[in-house]
Design a binder for these strands. Structure first.
Lengths: 344, 344
DNA sequence: AACGCTTTCGAAAGCGCTTTCATAGCATAC
DNA sequence: GTATGCTATGAAAGCGCTTTCGAAAGCGTT
């Protein structure tokens, strides 16, 4: 009966089955599913009944091929293990599903791609648009997508020179500066260490600038011995701070360029028997979920993670619909003073 | 030239373009791409050159439709915001991509599904198999998939009665019991509080059983006043412990059924000015990434999160290939003694 | 009753691929 | 030289949908 049966080990209902059962043509079934054209309520009910009885669901591949849209949004991340993304992805997923889009996830970096093979990532051949996070996609690929007029929204990242993509950014420099100002002005610290992020991460660079500017405006000389790379990683940050301690470097506060690094710093201090904030103050950036539950609760900068995710999808959807998206959606961030800086 | 051109705002190369450029038929191109049949090296090189020149990538939708497989694996989660999943997903993603599969992610719970609409989740119509996590899919849906012989692997969850699915499980009861034993035998605690997880989470239930068994075997009466629901959430756990404290309940240790809850407990204790482990010991379960960086480092049970993820994909792939998968892959877990229990 | 107009529906084409099937080409055996 | 078996290749069918197009049906008007 079914030609080529058995290619799939499991049976699949098709639109033809539904049409037969409802006594209509497949066009009509398609129309009630997609509400793409008026159907008399009589037939509509019959079709709906048939769909329910068969528990029919359209095959997305066939839909995508015929309709020339995949109903899928791609997510290009560099790293998912970090504690920053889960909340973001959750917001993105919710927003995508609300708009009836699927989410395809791709973590760059763990590169298993073999030379000569067709690259196996995300793009116009498997999604209608992608959200690109920092360090996940080369400028070359971005350029290619731009040429193809493929919808891309950059998150926490600005387009490379010459390309125009909508992007979602946050305020980094000013709050970083304010944070260091706070350390200096309110608490009187002068020896403020810094844990930097990744070199190709724009947010991290801007936060570092804020650190520099604050020091400078207070006449505090920049001391590279108490600046280290935290790489957005707990372990690396902990190691760096441990080294400072064993080397005997003096510092009365640490500004970590993200909360992950701050956690590493906290841990190093704790191991060394140093009290936070009495012996050394620690502050971070991002306000990830765990930060307010740390001991002591972390003073940090609140980044509206979920709003960013939601905005990213909304901009992408607008782009995909041919609307003109905001080329730059900028979110403000604000200091959250808790106890790790010495307040209270 | 191209009929219906412009349905997509961006141009797409097709296999026909490649074939023309290489001067061969599309069958040959397909064979080169999929290595599904021998092609003379002469033509193979021409085709590969044409693919490279055009930067061609096959459309997944057409591939899926013609080949009757989507090359996509679905992930059905109840919650992605928890700190447990990122590492798991990362391992899953890496393993999936190594096998040339895409990952479609679906977070249940934030249910936007409208009555009467076709449910918009994962299944045989958009993936070749799914990984089902606890609390993400109803038994009814599982039953339906089983009927359709659709490949499913359950992670941290056993199949409902009557259904056979491969599943990945971990050892819960014994290590939980050992953990409480440790608290009692090594540290001499008798008043051990418990933060439970979600009722429909098997791991959580088994951990609770281990807690009960340990108490019982040491002749310690079960006291429900110092048992509360932590819901795998930091905030809920913190609230619960705060309540115990303000109510004046006595306890010298807290066994949290996962590390997230332990973090909430730690936070509550810290806020109340109580020292861990001197005033109250805290232990958890899972050994999530942050646990060793807490102050103090958390004594917990190490769950091989990444191995679980890898095994889940491997079992699913085996299942999808028609091989007989192990119906139950069981992972051992081990106590990780750090400082929050009072050791050292 | 005949006409035009609108609305509803089905037939059929086609989306870009995989795969079957037939054939052309070639080497080997008689 | 013909019969035989193999391999490499192309033509064409078809995967399950969406969408166009034309026909049929309904309806109001003359």
């Amino acid at each position: 009966m079914a030609p080529r049966s058995g290619t799939r080990p499991f049976s699949q209902k098709t639109i033809t089955d539904v049409a037969q059962r409802a006594g209509v043509s497949i066009s009509t079934v398609s129309r009630v599913i997609n509400q793409s054209a008026p159907v008399s309520s009589n037939l509509e009910n019959k079709v709906k009944a048939a769909i329910a009885e068969l528990d029919y669901r359209p095959q997305t591949a066939a839909r995508a091929l015929a309709g020339q849209k995949t109903h899928t949004i791609g997510l290009l991340l560099a790293e998912i293990g970090t504690d920053f993304y889960p909340l973001m992805i959750r917001a993105i997923e919710a927003e995508a599903r609300k708009n009836h889009f699927n989410l395809l996830i791709n973590v760059a970096g763990d590169d298993t791609s073999i030379e000569g093979e067709i690259p196996y990532t995300l793009g116009e051949y498997n999604s209608d648009g992608v959200l690109v996070f920092p360090a996940s996609l080369s400028d070359d690929e971005l350029y290619r997508m731009h040429l193809n007029n493929f919808p891309v929204v950059l998150v926490q990242r600005r387009p490379p020179a010459g390309l125009e993509f909508p992007c979602i950014t946050i305020e980094n420099k000013l709050p970083a500066r304010k944070m260091v100002d706070h350390l200096i002005e309110v608490h009187g610290f002068r020896r403020i260490a810094f844990l930097s992020g990744l070199a190709d991460h724009e947010d991290a660079r801007r936060r570092e600038q804020g650190y520099h500017e604050s020091l400078e405006s207070h006449g505090i000389p920049y001391d590279p011995t108490i600046v280290a790379q935290g790489y957005f990683q707990k372990q690396a940050s902990q190691d760096a701070v441990c080294e400072w301690i064993t080397a005997g470097f003096e510092f009365d506060a640490i500004f970590a360029c993200d909360d992950i690094s701050a956690i590493g710093a906290l841990s190093a201090l704790n191991r060394a028997g140093l009290n936070v904030p009495n012996d050394v103050a620690v502050v971070g950036f991002d306000d990830i979920e765990v930060s307010r539950f740390l001991s002591p609760p972390l003073t940090t900068v609140k980044v509206p993670i979920q709003e960013i995710g939601r905005a990213a999808i909304q901009q992408l959807l607008a782009f995909m619909n041919g609307e003109v998206p905001d080329m730059c959606t900028h979110f403000e961030t604000e200091l959250v003073i808790r106890r790790s800086c010495g307040c209270r």
